[in-house]
Every structure is written in C-alpha cells, then in structure tokens.
C-alpha cells in the first residue's frame, strides 16, 4: 500500500535545486522549480544512472550532471532525441509540508 511520508518543508529545498531522500527504493530526488513547484523522481538518469539531484534545474527540467541529458521533472521523460524515462513518485504539499508517496509493501520492485 502507499504511505505518505513527511519529508520536511518546501523551504528545505533550494529554489531551482533539489534534495535527496534515502528510501527503500533507493535515493529519491525532490526538486523545487523557480515557481515553487515540487517533483519527486528516482535519482537516476535513464542514460547512465547519473544523480539527477546534482543537475541544473531550469523550468520544469533538469540536466543530468554526467552527460547532460535533459529530463522532464513532471513525466520523467528524456528530451528528444534521447530516449528513456525516469520513474516519478507521487508528492503532495499540505501547507508548507511535503509528503512523499511510497509503496511500502514488501513486494520487490521489478527492474526492467
């Protein structure tokens, strides 16, 4: 089942930046855009697993620090002509607190 985990406040994340959350699924990157939108993605670029949290955020995109693939924060999709997709996770904001939706059942997550 899905649990909502309190991960702190929006102010903990720098604008146009990201912080990470260690989870049983691996590291999750939580991004904050210039417009204070927040997004959560598995912290791995679909290309070579680069840590997306370390990339430069602009608009609703982040550029991977390893080879500059540009990933859409909303969909997790890589910008064409590159092809690939990073898993996105549900994230909700209540007042200024952020909650990350995590499936905590013991089922193994399939890796394709």
């Amino acid at each position: 089942m899905q649990d909502w985990i309190d991960i702190g406040t929006i102010a903990d994340i720098p604008r146009l930046g990201a912080r990470t959350v260690d989870t049983p699924l691996g590291e999750v990157a939580v991004f904050r855009t210039g417009d204070d939108e927040v997004f959560a993605l598995i912290n791995k670029c679909p290309h070579k697993n680069g840590p997306l949290s370390e990339g430069i955020v602009s608009g609703r995109k982040v550029a991977c620090p390893l080879h500059n693939w540009v990933i859409d924060l909303n969909s997790g999709e890589a910008q064409a002509p590159d092809e690939g997709c990073t898993t996105t996770l549900p994230l909700k904001q209540e007042a200024d607190r952020l909650f990350l939706g995590l499936v905590t059942a013991k089922k193994k997550v399939a890796h394709g």
Binding site: D6, I7, D12, I13, P14, R19, V21, D22, P24, V30
Partner: peptide
C-alpha cells in the same frame, strides 16, 4: 550545508 546531507532517511 544542505548540499551534503539527505533531506530525510526513510527506512
């Protein structure tokens, strides 16, 4: 300082 620590650790 925020650069070097995770926001939270979920076990």
């Amino acid at each position: 300082a925020h650069e070097f620590q995770p926001l939270v650790v979920v076990s």
